[in-house]
């Protein structure tokens, strides 16, 4: 764990943009995002598929492929990862101060290696544990944190059930002793029973082990259990953020209301429209007017709440 004294911010993003170049044009998957996660805090990033939340989560975990275009600034545990178009410290943070719990754990475990071997590789490279016996002891400790016994060590990934592979993936993410964990859609491949268990397990990493936690999800029902703060993403922008209780209790952005409504499965039909240079949500917003053709400024409402909508800016 790298603890810089006096530094109380785990993640700081300032006007961070991440994009992919396609035939000369840049498609910005993440647009001018501002984020701040205090050390020991927990943040859920909520949004639908394609909203750029996985790209953002990967960047926080130090996974920025060289072909990604960047702008703005990203600082993780005092290490400047992105500064303008430069990607600098990504390799310094990943697997050291920050790890990721993957979206699809079954595909994220090396099918050719026993679980023990994977623990050995991670422990050796991140924590300089060279002896196999020591690595094994450490792996058993980590597995007990997620409720698995050492029998799992001899197994290959294809011999594990979905819930077991997710728990192994969590134990592996804990192996480098990170101060931040990014959980990318940790429940998307699990049934309802396991979903509750895993969400509580991940929430406890933050509450009991004190790890700063970023959870990325499209499932608004897990937010309350996993996090204290949340940010709602739409088309690469953060449209609303604040403490979970406040945002879910009184959603201010029309998209947040739409997401909450979506969990009741009562919504039929989808509306799509052309993206404008103004408000990202304009094409789907029931309240849109001419003013929305200009980008809305963030409205800061106190108590950490921030909403990007002209209705509140006025």
């Amino acid at each position: 764990m790298v603890l810089a004294p006096g530094n109380r911010t785990a993640v700081l993003a300032e006007a961070l943009s991440l994009g992919y170049e396609d035939l000369g044009a840049v498609f910005w998957a993440v647009r001018e995002v501002d984020l701040e996660l205090p050390r020991g805090g927990s943040l859920c990033i909520v949004g639908e598929s394609g909203s750029g939340k996985t790209t953002l989560g990967n960047a926080l975990a130090g996974l920025i492929p060289p072909y990604v275009r960047t702008a703005g600034r990203l600082v993780v545990e005092g290490v400047e990862v992105v500064r303008g178009s430069r990607i600098a410290g990504a390799s310094k943070i990943r697997g050291r101060v920050v790890t990721r719990i993957p979206q699809n754990p079954a595909a994220s475990l090396n099918p050719y290696l026993r679980i023990e071997e994977m623990f050995y590789d991670v422990l050796r490279d991140s924590r300089e544990i060279k002896s196999r016996g020591e690595a094994r002891e450490e792996a058993v400790k980590l597995l007990s944190l997620v409720g698995l016994d050492e029998g799992v060590l001899h197994m290959y990934p294809h011999e594990l059930s979905g819930g077991m592979s997710q728990r192994v993936a969590i134990a592996l993410a804990l192996a480098p002793r990170p101060s931040i964990i990014v959980a990318d859609e940790p429940t998307s491949n699990l049934d309802a029973y396991l979903r509750g268990y895993i969400v509580r397990l991940i929430g406890n990493l933050n509450r009991k082990l004190g790890v700063s936690l970023v959870t990325i999800t499209h499932d608004i029902s897990i937010v309350e259990i996993a996090c204290e703060d949340m940010a709602v993403m739409f088309f690469g922008e953060i449209v609303e953020r604040g403490p979970v209780r406040d945002v879910l209790g009184k959603p201010l952005h029309p998209y947040t209301s739409e997401l909450i409504e979506a969990t009741t499965l009562k919504r039929a039909g989808l509306r799509y429209g052309e993206q404008t240079s103004g408000c990202a949500y304009y094409a789907r917003c029931p309240y849109g007017d001419e003013e929305c053709l200009r980008p809305p400024p963030p409205a800061r409402l106190g108590g950490g709440r921030e909403v990007r909508c002209w209705r509140l800016a006025r």
Partner: peptide, 26 residues
């Protein structure tokens, strides 16, 4: 770019191990 290779990258597995034990194994 396979999931399990990316995962090993995110866990800080070194480049040499990554190529031989993860990517090349398949």
């Amino acid at each position: 770019y396979e999931d399990y290779v990316m995962e090993a990258v995110s866990l800080g597995v070194s480049r040499g191990t990554l190529v031989t034990r993860y990517a090349l194994r398949g």
